[in-house]
């Protein structure tokens, strides 16, 4: 049973990460792939506060999420003032730099990782309670992104994304909006990190590196960018498929390469067959379906 619980938790955390990342890269069009570093901040801050400073775990989790939010504002403010592409550079720099720092100071456990993180709920209310908590957070995240994207704020977001000059000409503050969305998405990632840390009780800087960035990006793109359900489908697919493969009783010589090819294969397949992702954003793919007919004699 614990296997299923773990899988559900990882899928739910994937949903939180992918949905919040979709808010940033999809709806707001902010180019950044440093989402895992905010996941890491949430995990480390919450784990360290609870382990070394006796802060109750739920409070530590919220502080972890707030720390991720604060860090994201600190990264976004200067870089967004200049121009969009700088956010990509600044955030990757921040991601790599912070992870490097974590590896080199002793109170984070260094490169060997942080152990003995206090558990939460598992011993008092059982694993089911924790699963319910994480799934609850995932559902709330999806509902939140949905209400943001489909409300008046979402319309303002797409206006800003599609034409920032026109948007500014209407008297709206683009930078404030970008920073707010970036902070909200990063804060949610931080919360996911805190939820991860107190269930699995071990974190290491390695797991928040660029490979994780690629995994979250793949979830969003394969699922369907700029849609509510796309990141959810993407997260489920990318977490469950590698597990499903292990049940096929394949020989070891085949299992290894197959797992390795999975991510790359999925991205390639989707690039050719369904560039809009499994769940297509309405306004986005209608023109592309018409496109092949345009140039025909």
């Amino acid at each position: 049973m614990e296997y299923i619980y773990t899988l559900v938790i990882l899928i739910a955390l994937g949903v939180v990460l992918a949905s919040s990342f979709n808010l940033i890269i999809g709806y707001a069009g902010l180019v950044s792939i440093a989402h895992p570093v905010f996941y890491a901040i949430g995990a480390y801050v919450s784990a360290l506060l609870a382990r070394d400073h006796g802060v109750p775990v739920p409070v530590a989790m919220i502080l972890g999420a707030l720390a991720a939010m604060a860090a994201s504002i600190a990264v976004a403010l200067p870089s967004l003032r200049v121009s969009g592409d700088y956010l990509l550079i600044a955030s990757i720099g921040f991601q790599l730099g912070l992870l490097e720092a974590i590896k080199n100071v002793s109170f984070t456990g260094g490169a060997g990782g942080l152990t003995n993180i206090p558990p939460f709920l598992i011993q008092t209310a059982g694993r089911e309670a924790y699963v319910a908590l994480v799934v609850g957070v995932a559902v709330l995240t999806v509902l939140l992104t949905r209400s943001i994207a489909h409300g008046p704020y979402g319309r303002a977001l797409s206006a800003m994304r599609d034409d920032e000059l026109a948007f500014a000409a209407l008297g709206r503050n683009a930078v404030a909006m970008k920073v707010a969305v970036f902070a909200l998405g990063s804060g949610l990632a931080g919360l996911a990190g805190a939820l991860y840390a107190h269930y699995f009780r071990f974190v290491t800087p390695e797991q928040f590196e660029l490979l994780q960035s690629a995994a979250i990006l793949t979830m969003v793109v394969v699922g369907g960018i700029r849609t509510t359900w796309g990141p959810v489908v993407g997260a489920i697919l990318l977490q469950a498929l590698p597990q499903a493969i292990t049940f096929l009783d394949l020989p070891v010589a085949l299992l290894g390469p197959l797992q390795g090819l999975l991510f790359t294969g999925l991205v390639l397949v989707f690039m050719f067959w369904r560039p809009q992702g499994l769940v297509a954003a309405g306004e986005f793919w209608r023109p592309s379906r018409e496109a092949p007919d345009v140039g025909r004699p």
């Binding site: 299923i4 773990t6 699995f200 290491t204 390695e206 797991q207 590698p242 290894g256």
Partner: peptide, 18 residues
């Protein structure tokens, strides 16, 4: 398979155990 990755390792261990 663990891919030498902690998270994949936890999943493998859970699978083996439960």
């Amino acid at each position: 398979d663990t891919r030498a990755d902690p998270q994949a390792g936890i999943q493998a261990a859970n699978r083996l155990i439960s």
